[in-house]
Design a protein around this nucleic acid. Structure first.
Lengths: 244, 244
DNA sequence: CGAGCATTTGAGTCTCCTCAACCCGGGTGG
DNA sequence: CCACCCGGGTTGAGGAGACTCAAATGCTCG
């Protein structure tokens, strides 16, 4: 996966939120530390009190929670150009962790400086808020996915989301780099890895997808969308703030 | 359930977000329409383009989505003093609906005026953002709940959340007014109403709860918490914005 | 070439679902 | 004033989807 610079990462983030390059100038000037987190390492730890806010520049990551009997639930995936812990800028203690799926490159901005800047720049704060609103929409769809769809639909839906969100990094033919394990898919869909495996095999045998070696290819997009009951409205991709 | 005035509703909202009464003065001055929505009526309709933002003043409501084969999933409950569609202030089209559980009293603020005000008052925008962040935390916990807990734990967790959130409206002994049907509980926990019924009976027979006639009484809080793996950190109740 | 992780397969089990009927209380109309 | 009607709650029986446990296979990296 690509590796962005801090400026490129911010630019990608800004584009998604319909900010102009000028709007993010003040963010560019913020102090920031470039960090690397190895695969399986924690970017954010549950229970800790964060001091910074991390923009993902390379690699991919996911949010997870662990329940009392040890099971894990993944609640979201993150890719370059996304803040992985925007909530840290206002919430005092992490209620969940963020873990690296692959080696990750991050730009960490001190939350104090960021907060002070946003206070001065309502347009940027609005963008951060919008980002959070879109992420909340994503969580809502995931509640629906694990709550009301069967294994096959859950899996198809997740793959659809990944295909759409990673399209911008791919060659455009719904052939995406996606270094995910079946266990992670299981944790994201609320299933066991065994059942995930059998469900994947089902979709494979029908010729709908290929999924191996860190690559997902969707061969029949309309069919996969139909199986997953996928409506990309919830991603709010081309959404924009209303003119005031 | 109580019926608040616009000012009281805002005050309740502000208190949760650690704003002072002074901070919300500008909001009080906004134009607003008081509306009533009957039980089962829609406060927000999926697919529509909203023009206002609704603050709940009386009654209770829930967010829901419908999947293609007709099943419903409830993603959150809302009570007086909460905005039910904060996302409408920035997102252009509703990706889900909000429905009244009981007759609801609402104050609807035009989104243009609200947006203009927030642009002038960074402190208020920050509070709205914080509100959204907390709600996102709630959705995350729900993903975990429906994804990784069994029927008993799911139900217990939901009841714990309701007990904590409605405590402020109750007489303080975890005896709360909660006019919810078993079908709604089923839609919130991702189960069928039949299985919900049997699971409730299980908790009742063990003497942990009473749930009937629109009233929930938790007889054994520690036990219910343990069964539901409930950790109220995700509600971020006493959370506050960091000093900048 | 072996170690370690990820994937695959099999068999048996259990939770939760489906379908269907019945009960109960409250509101309504004859 | 009582019959009925309706929504919500309860019960039963049978089935299916997903889980558990266990082992084998394959892949990748050192």
């Amino acid at each position: 996966m690509i590796e962005l610079s801090y400026a490129e990462g911010l630019a990608r983030w800004a584009r998604r939120l319909e900010l102009s390059p000028d709007d993010i100038q003040p963010l560019l000037a913020l102090p920031h530390a470039i960090q690397t987190v190895e695969r399986d390492g924690f970017i954010v730890r549950e229970g800790e009190r964060p001091t910074g806010c991390a923009l993902l520049l390379g690699g991919s990551a996911f949010r997870l929670k662990v329940v009392n009997h040890g099971a894990r639930q993944i609640m979201a995936f993150h890719f370059p150009g996304e803040f992985v812990d925007l909530q840290n800028s206002l919430l005092s203690v992490n209620d969940h962790g963020v873990q690296a799926m692959t080696r990750c490159k991050l730009a960490v901005v001190p939350k104090k400086e960021l907060a002070a800047l946003l206070e001065r720049e309502p347009g940027l704060m609005r963008a951060m808020w919008l980002d959070t609103l879109i992420e909340a929409a994503l969580f809502r769809e995931w509640v629906v996915n694990v709550g009301r769809r069967n294994a096959r639909a859950r899996l198809a839906h997740l793959l659809c989301e990944l295909a759409v969100r990673l399209e911008e990094f791919s060659r455009g033919d719904r052939n995406i780099e996606m270094p995910i394990t079946q266990e992670q898919i299981a944790d994201a869909t609320g299933m066991t890895s065994v059942h995930t495996n059998r469900t994947i095999q089902g979709l494979r045998k029908e010729g709908l997808i290929s999924l191996s070696g860190g690559r997902l290819v969707v061969h029949d997009w309309p069919a996969l969308k139909a199986i997953g009951d996928f409506n990309e409205l919830y991603l709010h991709r081309a959404d924009k703030a209303p003119e005031v």
